Computed example of a mutant assay.
Amino acid sequence: MANIKSAKKRILVNETKAARNKAIKSKVKTCVKKVETAVAKKDATAAQDALKVAISEINKAGSKGVYHKNTCSRKIARLSKAVNEIA
């Protein structure tokens, strides 16, 4: 356990940031899963709609520093490719 005041503060701040990052990552994963299930069902319109939402959430996560920009690009590219193959 930390004894120094600044170290105690860092622990609290890190817990707060970890909780925020976890929530954002969970939201992104949910959106990605919705796109993948729509692609699996070969439902092009639902996949397109889900893709729009997923791209938005992935970009938000990237701008907040939860994901690296290349990771965001890779996720978006893979989802877009999957949706375009069924369209």
Rank of each mutant, 00 (worst) to 15 (best):
D43P: 02
Y67C: 08
K8C: 04
E36R: 14
V83T: 05
S56E: 11
N14A: 07
D49F: 05
S56L: 12
V28K: 10
A2I: 02
A19H: 08
G62L: 09
S6E: 11
K64G: 03
V28L: 06
A47V: 08
K8Q: 13
K9V: 09
E57P: 00
A23E: 10
A50S: 13
A18R: 15
I76R: 10
K22F: 07
N70R: 14
E36K: 15
K64F: 13
C31W: 01
Q48C: 00
K9F: 04
A47K: 11
R20D: 04
T71D: 15
V53T: 15
K29T: 04
N14Y: 02
K81L: 12
V39W: 04
C72S: 15
A50V: 01
A19G: 03
I76K: 13
L12F: 01
K75S: 06
K52G: 12
Y67N: 11
K22N: 08
K41L: 09
R78N: 12
V66K: 14
C72G: 06
R20C: 00
I24Q: 06
I4N: 10
K81W: 02
K41G: 01
E85L: 13
D43V: 05
A7H: 12
A2S: 09
V66R: 11
V83K: 09
M1W: 04
I24N: 02
A40Q: 14
K34H: 06
K75L: 14
I58V: 15
I24H: 05
V53K: 15
R10C: 03
L79F: 04
N70T: 12
A50D: 09
K25Y: 03
K29E: 12
E57F: 11
I4L: 13
V35F: 03
S6M: 08
K5E: 14
A40H: 07
S6C: 01
L79T: 02
V35K: 09
L12A: 15
A40Y: 06
Y67S: 09
Y67L: 10
N84G: 01
A2W: 03
K9T: 09
A87V: 14
L12E: 13
A7K: 12
A47D: 05
A38C: 08
V35W: 03
A46P: 02
R78E: 13
K75N: 07
V66P: 05
K75C: 00
K75A: 04
K5C: 00
A2C: 02
I58Y: 08
A7G: 01
R78A: 07
K60T: 08
V13M: 05
D49M: 11
A54M: 10
N70D: 13
V83H: 04
K75M: 15
K75R: 12
R10P: 03
A77G: 06
V32N: 04
E15T: 01
G62F: 10
I86S: 02
H68P: 08
R10A: 11
T71E: 15
K81T: 11
K25D: 00
I11G: 00
K41H: 05
A18Q: 11
A47P: 04
K8D: 02
L12W: 02
E15N: 06
K75F: 07
K22T: 05
